[in-house]
Write a protein that binds this DNA or RNA. Structure first.
Lengths: 343, 343
DNA sequence: CGTTGCACCGCAAACGTTTACGGTGCGATG
DNA sequence: CATCGCACCGTAAACGTTTGCGGTGCAACG
């Protein structure tokens, strides 16, 4: 069912059919109605390849994710919620979102390069940004619109959205200090992902502000998974001068930490104060409940989409803000896992 | 950087360049080398739209998922692992996997219809199959290759892969009966998804085999999330004749059930035996550990990919098996959550 | 030497669109 | 009645590929 078949079924020219379908002005309202009716009746849908070839645009936006262990540890429903938010915006503009998983055997940079050079997408979201991330420079050089989920130190000006890891780390330290803690550990990711640096820097600055010496022995790096949390807690418990609190870069860690404490006959909160990152469904169901931070991933998705459209010339009239950088606030949700020390 | 530019840079015709790049026989090895070198040097990558338009094939396979709450409960990690498996197979055939999330505001059937009629993909995976699923009939009618993750009662012959829900339900009931339980509840999903019927049917048959009467009061249906598990357990605890065991259709439920039991001062396992479905990272870290079932999602992905290729004419020589249906076995992994009754 | 066969390459059509351009018919205007 | 403007529509080129067909040159053969 091509536009040609549709045209000769209507006994009019291809061009007119195209104009009628695309809502151009110079077509008789009467014929437009006929065309639309016939298209509907015959189930005509424009061929994407033909259209893309002609106008050099695909109306498809890609979202790259990595299917390796570090990303997996986002676990639960992190990306699903973000996608949902993105799509609520895209639906209004006839844009399609496709997710491009980068397999664990593949290199993220090659992956992006393949996607871009095949001219598959009009724009791109990339996640899990590294501290220096060649993908960013590449995309800027190629001039294709993109937004990163996560900051980076790479290259030029570009749009990004990130979560307020500084705020979380600083706030968590301040809160723990206020509750009597002085020996506060950090559970961070071992990957080169940029947020790990941000998180740790902020933690160090917060300690300094409260006059607490930085002790590298209680800054742990590992897999940000349940298993990783277990291992980190293991190492914490083995220390001669055991910390009384720990701040987590990720809430999956909490599950392992709870488990390790239970195995040692200790109780999360009472024997070790814990502050997690995001209020995930799992975190919400830990017992005692985990102190963590509220974050609407759906809204992050909406913002991501708007931010991307703002960098695309074709949508400049709807989204004029241009290049944007946004640190997404995270609001602390008190739980039972960080009671006052000794209280 | 089109093939035309590449051709005139080499002073040869477009056709020859194309043949050289596509490994056809009738091209001088010497010129082929020159072409490949130039393509590499100038960073030429064939335009996907042009190629698709000409040969009516995109080399792209879609994987539809739903980003609503029911699917979310599977979590990102579920699909990530599957994707990874799919891609290990696809990488060998220059195929690209794209994930097509169906937003919660969209209808899954419309979603598939849009994807297909735009001729976006050469093949499709669909998940979360309903008991009667119009998508299946549609895809068969359109003749586009697809494999479903999950059975359905819809329409004609097609390839699918599903998990052995019968085996799990029957095995769980048998195991619990052997451990002294007679009053065994079921925690199922309330959605119309096909597996819920399969699971419940098998549970009923297993009860009958062991001479236990079916009691609709202890067959619970709800959200298969942590919260849903909490609610289901709530209802179970309120029953006058409280069950001593419960079989879960999903391991996220376990987290809520554990929590509800704790809140009631009860202990999972001792006060209520629990058998979950899949051995997820979260389930592995419950305490007491959850009895559940081993399942390699990566291998499921591999099998899905092979199964799809087997239905595509272009790959018939590599994968000659044609239409396949496979129930994926799940092996029970004993945990501490289903000890003998009274033991 | 004429013919044949073969290896290699160029030509051009075709895939399904969109869109600039020009053409037609018609009512309004002078 | 001649002219103009306008609304509408058809024509054809272009996007980047692939591929059937035919053509060239050359070696081998009778």
């Amino acid at each position: 069912m091509s536009i040609k078949a549709l045209a000769q079924h209507l006994n009019i020219s291809i061009g007119t059919v195209s104009r009628a379908l695309n809502g151009r002005a110079d077509v008789n309202p009467e014929t437009r109605k006929r065309v639309l009716a016939a298209a509907e009746a015959l189930g005509y849908v424009p061929n994407q390849s033909g259209r893309s070839l002609r106008q050099g645009t695909t109306n498809v936006i890609g979202f790259t994710i990595e299917t390796n262990i570090e990303t997996k540890s986002q676990g639960d429903t992190f990306f699903m919620s973000v996608f949902d938010g993105v799509q609520t915006v895209f639906a209004r503009h006839q844009l399609d979102l496709v997710v491009l998983p980068c397999s664990s055997e593949d290199d993220p940079f090659d992956h992006v390069r393949r996607v871009v050079s095949r001219q598959f997408v009009d724009g791109l979201f990339i996640s899990a940004t590294q501290r220096v991330d060649p993908r960013i420079d590449f995309l800027i050089e190629r001039g294709i619109p993109f937004v990163t989920l996560g900051r980076s130190q790479s290259g030029g000006e570009h749009s990004w959205i990130d979560m307020d890891f500084e705020g979380v780390a600083a706030g968590a330290v301040a809160r723990l200090v206020a509750r009597g803690h002085r020996r506060i550990a950090l559970a961070n990711t071992a990957s080169g992902i940029n947020l790990s640096y941000i998180f740790e820097d902020s933690y160090r600055r917060a300690l300094a502000e409260h006059g607490i010496d930085y002790d590298p022995d209680i800054v742990m790096r590992g897999e940000i998974t349940e298993r990783g949390g277990y291992a980190i807690c293991d190492r914490l418990l083995a220390l001669p001068d055991r910390p009384t609190a720990v701040v987590l870069v990720n809430e999956s860690l909490a599950i392992g930490i709870y488990r390790r404490l239970h195995d040692a006959g200790l109780m999360p909160g009472r024997d070790m104060a814990i502050i997690g990152l995001r209020q995930s469904p799992q975190a919400r169901f830990l017992s005692p409940t985990l102190t963590c931070h509220r974050l609407s991933l759906h809204d992050v998705g909406v913002e991501l989409a708007q931010s991307l459209l703002a960098t695309m010339p074709a949508y400049r009239d709807h989204y004029p803000q241009g290049v944007t950088q946004k640190i997404w606030p995270m609001e602390l949700v008190p739980g039972e896992s960080d009671p006052p020390l000794g209280g």
